[in-house]
Design a protein around this nucleic acid. Structure first.
Lengths: 199, 199
DNA sequence: TACATTTGTCTAACACTGTTAAATAATATA
DNA sequence: TATATTATTTAACAGTGTTAGACAAATGTA
């Protein structure tokens, strides 16, 4: 009867091994390289037994996503309990969020649908550079300083781009909150940053 | 001799057909459903001839990405030439960027690595909701109003989340500009929004 | 017109993918 | 030891991207 528990523990072990192996493969070769047979190889089994532990490949990804949120929660909670001032707490929490994203790139990717594979040179596209330059130049024009430092223009550009791209991404992935609120946020953000641009 | 050009025109036609068919499939079934054989079916050929027009599947995606940037450039440029005031121009340009993203969701996805397939319920994860609530509550706490309208708290939360997620995404996908500038932007943005939170 | 050459297109195959059913090996139960 | 149960594997299916070789159609050449 005690062996029942031992076996259950072993089963739990290989389940955990599957998840670990998956993440290891992804860290080494990226998400697109993750295959059932590769996972099986790593845990020294054949592919079909994975289906004893997970419904399918998506099941593995879902569990990894869940684990990602668990870690994120821990980190954010931990960061929240350092300072006492609420504003400082909020700042620390977002920084914890940021740090989580880079400490667990693969999980963040999975959780929020951020691909990072297929962009060998997309940046080398003259067309892509051109699009950026349009904004870049206009921002420089808006800045009141005669010759604003290039680094400052760059920062402003990325601030703009980040918030707008972020808002778009969240909406495309999460289907977002209705269009009215989005446009409200969008306009607020743009106006806010433009105001903020010369301080 | 004239037939040479006619044939070249025909070849250019099927090349364009391949791109159109691809985009059509993606709009109907999503990026993960795009396959060479499906494209071939749509243009009434067999798969191997596609390789006469594109090096491989990635080549098709690259060309579609390029086309995306061309359209984006047009839209932004058009938006830039409506008003005369530089600040208003900048605002219009970002709104054009926003509109492009939703008018050409599939292209935007491809250009900036935004997955939108595998999120059936990720939002239903209690763990995911929990992470959001931590921020949600803290923002409410920071807001000076006794009982800030829920809709306002929500907007602030999405503004925060957008800029930070956007900054992260851009860095994960584009490898970004060095870490120093990122942290500069991050801190600026967070402090700026916190300041902006009670106006 | 007759042959040769290039061009266009397809068939068949390879190595891979996720997934399932059936056969086998290992274990526990009687 | 014989039986029943569980663990694991083999074999297969349908799909993927991609390539080589066969075949047909059009072209150029004599």
């Amino acid at each position: 009867m005690g062996s029942k528990e031992r076996i259950a523990r072993l089963k739990e072990d290989t389940r955990s091994n599957i998840l670990d192996a998956s993440l290891e493969i992804v860290k080494e070769e990226g998400w697109q390289a993750l295959s059932m047979r590769k996972i099986a190889d790593k845990i020294e089994y054949t592919a079909p037994i994975i289906y004893e532990y997970f419904e399918n490949k998506e099941g593995i990804l879902l569990e990894l996503t869940r684990q990602g949120y668990v870690i994120l929660n821990q980190e954010v909670k931990k960061a929240m309990n350092v300072e006492t001032d609420a504003e400082k707490q909020l700042e620390d929490m977002w920084i914890a969020y940021w740090n989580f994203a880079f400490a667990h790139k693969e999980l963040y990717q999975l959780m929020y649908g951020v691909e990072m594979n297929c962009c060998y040179q997309k940046k080398a596209f003259p067309e892509a550079v051109h699009a950026n330059n349009l904004f870049y130049n206009k921002i420089r024009e808006v800045m009141t300083a005669e010759n604003p430092e290039e680094e400052l223009v760059c920062r402003k550009f990325y601030t703009f781009w980040s918030i707008i791209h972020g808002l778009i991404s969240i909406n495309l992935v999460n289907k977002g909150r209705g269009q009215e609120m989005n446009e409200q946020i969008l306009h607020d953000a743009i106006k806010g940053i433009i105001k903020y641009i010369n301080d």
